[in-house]
């Protein structure tokens, strides 16, 4: 081993290289690495937050779904009630109408009955008149009268 000025040269070279590395190489690289680390942890935190938000949103969705369901049920119930009311109203109306018609019909029948009775009376009186005419034309015969009267009765 013989030592010479190479030793000093190497020391100077070493110092210069370390200085260059310290000044221009290490800082930007380590800064980039640290920045990436920060970004990664930020991203992970964001993912965590997203997960949490999702869970909250799911709960909210469930709640509003339930609410909507109960509202719909209420609306259906109301509608059913209203339908029943309408049916009842219709029934009531129909009954009234029917009553009205019945009353009108009864009045009509009464009128016709009265008219028929009137006519019958007229016919009876005319028949009685005719019978009386026949009786007056003939001799009064009990038997014959009886026969006429029977005939009369049968005609009435």
């Amino acid at each position: 081993m013989n030592f010479n000025a190479t030793l000093i040269g190497q020391m100077i070279t070493f110092a210069i290289f370390v200085w260059v590395c310290m000044k221009y190489i290490w800082p930007p690289l380590i800064a980039a690495l640290e920045e990436r680390n920060a970004r990664i942890s930020e991203g992970l935190a964001a993912a965590q937050r997203g997960q949490q938000d999702l869970e909250e949103a799911e709960i909210k969705v469930k709640e509003s779904l339930n609410e909507a369901k109960s509202q719909a049920q209420e609306i259906i119930n109301q509608a059913q009630k209203r339908a029943n009311e309408i049916v009842d109203e219709a029934k009531e109306g129909a009954r009234e109408e029917a009553d009205k018609i019945k009353v009108a019909a009864t009045a009509d029948i009464d009128q016709q009955v009265t008219a028929a009775r009137e006519q019958l009376r007229k016919e009876v009186s005319s028949i009685a008149l005719a019978g009386a005419e026949q009786i007056l034309k003939r001799e009064v015969d009990a038997k014959a009268h009886a026969a006429v009267l029977d005939d009369l009765v049968a005609q009435i």
């Binding site: 000025a5 070279t13 690289l29 980039a32």
Partner: peptide
């Protein structure tokens, strides 16, 4: 002075600095 030792020592040191400096310039996250 040992010319060969110094030459290869400095040369390889420069290679190292040059290679890493290239990466350092483009360093980003």
């Amino acid at each position: 002075i040992n010319v060969d030792s110094m030459f290869f020592s400095i040369g390889l040191g420069v290679v190292f600095l040059w290679l890493f400096h290239r990466a350092a310039k483009k360093a980003s996250s």
